[in-house]
Write a protein that binds this DNA or RNA. Structure first.
Lengths: 330, 330
DNA sequence: TTGTATGCGTTATCAG
DNA sequence: CTGATAACGCATACAA
């Protein structure tokens, strides 16, 4: 195989008339090197267009600066937003995001196993139900793990969580302020942490009578199914609290198709997450906003902390939320 | 620095009582090795839980099996779908997707440069306006480049394209079949290849009088802006051909808010791409469907081809499209 | 068919 | 402060 000519540290060293070691020390800012040599090395490196080979460095240092980003449902709006900010932030801090989508089919534990053999610097998990195998695998290889919106508590595994409690409080306060009499909770049967947690908080904090509609999926289709169940109720509720925006939007679409504008105007529907579509004219959904930016920033901050202090006790940082009141498209 | 104990080929070799070379040959299926030895090596490798170190292999082979996926607007629905299928397909074929989001701010050429130093096996670009620098950089390093829905034609750079021509034909045929008299084209002023190409094809193939509404952005906001301009027209058109689904949905939302159901029912609005929201009850958008699955499959197929035949002449594969007729939510 | 020896490009250690 | 040298873990030409 014909090997491609690359600019190597050796080349720079020769051009600058110094040793490889001096080059390494200069460019990694690690170790003593005289200003004179430093200048010569810099000049030579720039002229030759030298950049370190990350593979070689990774092999040597046992860490590649690659960060595995494990995520389910990439094509759901909110997740896509998370991914975008996570990858942007990682790059900004000189990590490289290796994206691992986890479908139902794919055996993601195998993929995770693969990650270990890249000497990844860390793994950020946004998947809904990460197999326990991931932890054992990562811990065994001493790879930092950051969990986003996950229940699981593990030693040395940091987490960043959306403030579901505050969000639910804001929503319930919203319904109370508007003197809602008959509330319906739309939730799902799946094992998504966010949904489970919000449902739990709801039932603990709610102080008015309510009914529950439970559907299988937590996406738009689930919302449609929920909307149909709403129509089957005897009489209309005046409040429908949906545990995420997709559910709310599905409900809205079904109700809009079957109910008059007047009737609909008296039903307050809310969501959770504030994904892009919540702001669309047709929905103008009142919902709880969680910032993907600060979520990403916090995740990467925790990752860096754990990389430099592998033995620190685990922490769980909570991301603030706010209520976004919209007029429901009226 | 305390180094983590890893299972290395040497360990396997000792456990199996053979040389490192025999282990390498067995596991990479490259070179001759007797069945007996092969079995012993396999057994030892399994028992010890050995997996090759991709960094070391990459350093040696000058290719890391990492594939850079460069993409703008991750959080747009259709792009997210592309990403999902691209990454899934890449993993399926034993590549690892390194995700590079390109914003307006970020200087992505720097990031691309970084990719080169991972000895990436290839780069797949879905960004709308990839800087020319990318090509020169990749070609210089002899890294395969696959372009998705891009105009740029470069030697040794393969492309996969959506069949915009057929799509436009289907749409115009649709309007003709329904005896549309007054058509409005909604397009943008940006330099997105898909939009530009579709607009060009439209003007070449259209055989009825039409008006043009041009907005700045090609996202939902652009659609809203377009919708407002539609309302300013003297009299309503009976057809609005939008060059992507986002534009169409924005237009629909504005018109729904201002026009009566009856008037709206006489306006045929169409999009392009068939993103998830096009199928939502509220929109039921007639649009041109392009399959992200086959797009991803084709991209990876071309990538593999170029990896094994770096000097092959470039090709452009076209992905078939179909018209998805929906009732517009009536 | 197998083992030996060498290179891949860095960084870290240890003399000088 | 600097330069030789040994890892890092793998693949492969070459010799046996």
């Amino acid at each position: 195989m014909s090997r491609i000519k690359r600019v190597t540290a050796q080349d720079v060293a020769e051009a600058a008339g110094v040793s490889r070691a001096a080059v390494s020390r200069t460019l990694s800012n690690n170790g003593y090197v005289s200003p004179a040599v430093r200048a010569r090395v810099q000049a030579a490196a720039d002229k030759l267009g030298y950049r370190v080979n990350y593979l070689a460095r990774g092999l040597n240092q046992q860490r590649s600066d690659i960060v595995g980003v494990v995520v389910a449902d990439i094509d759901s709006s909110f997740r896509a937003c998370q991914i975008r900010h996570l990858t942007e932030t990682l790059l900004q801090y000189n990590y490289r995001p290796l994206l691992i989508p986890t479908g139902e089919k794919r055996d993601c534990s195998q993929v995770i196993d693969m990650l270990m053999h890249y000497s990844v610097s860390g793994v950020i998990i946004t998947s809904d139900t990460p197999p326990a195998e991931i932890y054992t695998n990562c811990i065994e290889h001493q790879v930092p793990v950051i969990l986003i919106n996950k229940a699981d508590q593990h030693p040395k595994v940091d987490r960043v969580l959306c403030d579901n409690a505050k969000g639910m409080e804001l929503l319930l306060d919203y319904y109370q302020r508007h003197h809602c009499q008959r509330l319906v909770l739309v939730t799902t049967a799946g094992n998504s942490y966010s949904i489970r947690e919000r449902e739990h908080l709801f039932s603990r904090q709610v102080s008015m009578p309510y009914e529950v509609i439970r559907v299988a999926r937590h996406d738009y289709q689930g919302g449609v199914e929920a909307g149909q169940k709403v129509l089957e109720l005897t009489g209309q509720p005046d409040g429908i609290l949906c545990l995420n925006d997709y559910l709310a939007i599905g409900v809205i679409d079904v109700l809009k198709a079957s109910l008059s504008k007047q009737v609909l105007a008296n039903i307050r529907i809310t969501g959770f997450d504030d994904m892009a579509q919540a702001g669309w004219l047709n929905y103008q959904l009142t919902t709880v906003h969680q910032s993907c930016e600060s979520l990403a920033a916090t995740a990467v901050k925790l990752l860096q902390r754990r990389i430099s202090h592998p033995q620190a006790t685990e922490v769980a940082e909570v991301i603030d939320v706010i209520l976004v009141e919209r007029d429901g498209g009226q």
